[in-house]
């Protein structure tokens, strides 16, 4: 065990992955000698050489196209997109190519060894293009896995699982927590399961669900509600796609209430998918409408960021609304 922040944990996971398999590569904009603008790939070029850890030209569709080719060849690419806001030039290579590679070829070829890492999310005064949470765009794409950790321990275990998973995985890293979130992390190799939610706190009155950086905010709201005598079950979804319907549904069957919170805008966000599914699975057990506490349906603003975000007070109010319904 060692104290690590989330960047250390990610760097440590990449180091383990590159050490165990000579065909594992890390690349992207500024990833090489400099170690990435957030320093997630720090030291890897020194250790594994320029052929395995390198800068690419500034072209996201190229980075992911290149990574698709590498993965189909049998290498294990870990591609970095500098900010999730800039993943859209590669949308075609992800949605039309990576996600459909195995299916369309009848399993003659696949890019299962591909992992795409990208810092996502707001709370850093990043304005429109350093704050987005694009997971719902990818959740609509069969063939992909989408994973988001909430702290250093989760980040390392889930990233190692993503790298070794035999499907293309998009791994979104909550950049607000890169340095802010510090915790005990085993220095040795371990994995956390993909497709499994984690019950972080058990409770009986309401199920509170979020992922990534939003977990911290959800927990704060849960603490406020606990002071009011409300027993909250707090769950980290961890995997957006495929997602763990069973764990969420079982929790809601018990509590009868569900609140989902996400940083991304409300309309067609992933919370909508969860709400619709749980409404169907748990219809007779629901005692109040499913609450969604999300970003507004606007681009991510700079000056009014505090008003825009789904903060703990907005969540706290929604918990009370649900309980008092």
């Amino acid at each position: 065990m060692a104290q690590m922040n989330m960047l250390h944990a990610i760097n440590n996971a990449l180091d383990i992955a590159m050490d165990e398999d000579d065909s594992t590569l890390c690349f992207g904009e500024d990833v090489g000698h400099f170690g990435g603008v957030f320093r997630a790939t720090s030291g890897l070029q020194d250790k594994y050489g320029k052929l395995r850890c390198f800068n690419t030209p500034l072209v996201e569709q190229g980075i992911i196209g290149f990574a698709n080719g590498l993965a189909s060849q049998g290498s294990r690419p870990i591609a970095e997109i500098q900010f999730a806001d800039y993943i859209f030039p590669a949308f075609d290579q992800i949605v039309n190519e990576a996600a459909k590679f195995r299916y369309r070829s009848g399993n003659e070829f696949d890019v299962g060894k591909l992992t795409i890492r990208s810092p996502y999310g707001g709370g850093i005064a990043g304005g429109l293009y350093h704050s987005q949470s694009p997971e719902a765009y990818f959740a609509h794409t069969p063939g992909l896995k989408v994973v988001i950790p909430r702290n250093p321990y989760q980040a390392k275990g889930l990233l190692l699982a993503s790298i070794r998973d035999d499907n293309p995985v998009i791994f979104f890293e909550p950049k607000r927590l890169y340095r802010a979130s510090v915790g005990e992390v085993p220095t040795e190799d371990y994995q956390l399961p993909l497709g499994k939610a984690e019950i972080v706190q058990t409770g009986s009155d309401i199920t509170l669900l979020a992922w990534g950086a939003q977990m911290e905010i959800l927990q704060k709201a849960a603490d406020l509600a606990t002071n009011d005598g409300i027993s909250c079950e707090v769950i980290d979804l961890r995997s957006i796609l495929p997602w763990d319907i069973e764990t969420i549904a079982n929790s809601v069957l018990k509590t009868g209430r569900l609140l989902v919170s996400q940083e991304a805008p409300l309309t067609a966000g992933f919370a909508s998918e969860i709400a619709a599914t749980i409404q169907q699975e748990c219809f007779l057990h629901l005692e109040s409408p499913v609450e969604r506490v999300c970003g507004l349906d606007t681009p991510y603003p700079l000056a009014l960021e505090k008003e825009y975000v789904a903060d703990h007070l907005k969540i706290y109010e929604a918990i009370k609304r649900s309980i008092n319904y």
Binding site: S23, Q61, G62, I64, G65, F66, A67, N68, G69, L70, A71, S72, Q73, G74, S75, P77, D92, Q93, N96, E97, K100, F101, R104, S105, G106, E108, F109
Partner: peptide, 21 residues
Amino acid sequence: MTISSPLGTQIPQATGYAYGQ
């Protein structure tokens, strides 16, 4: 490599494939 309809997508993929080789 299995063909796909979206035009040009195989071009950067070929670069990656060759790099792996």
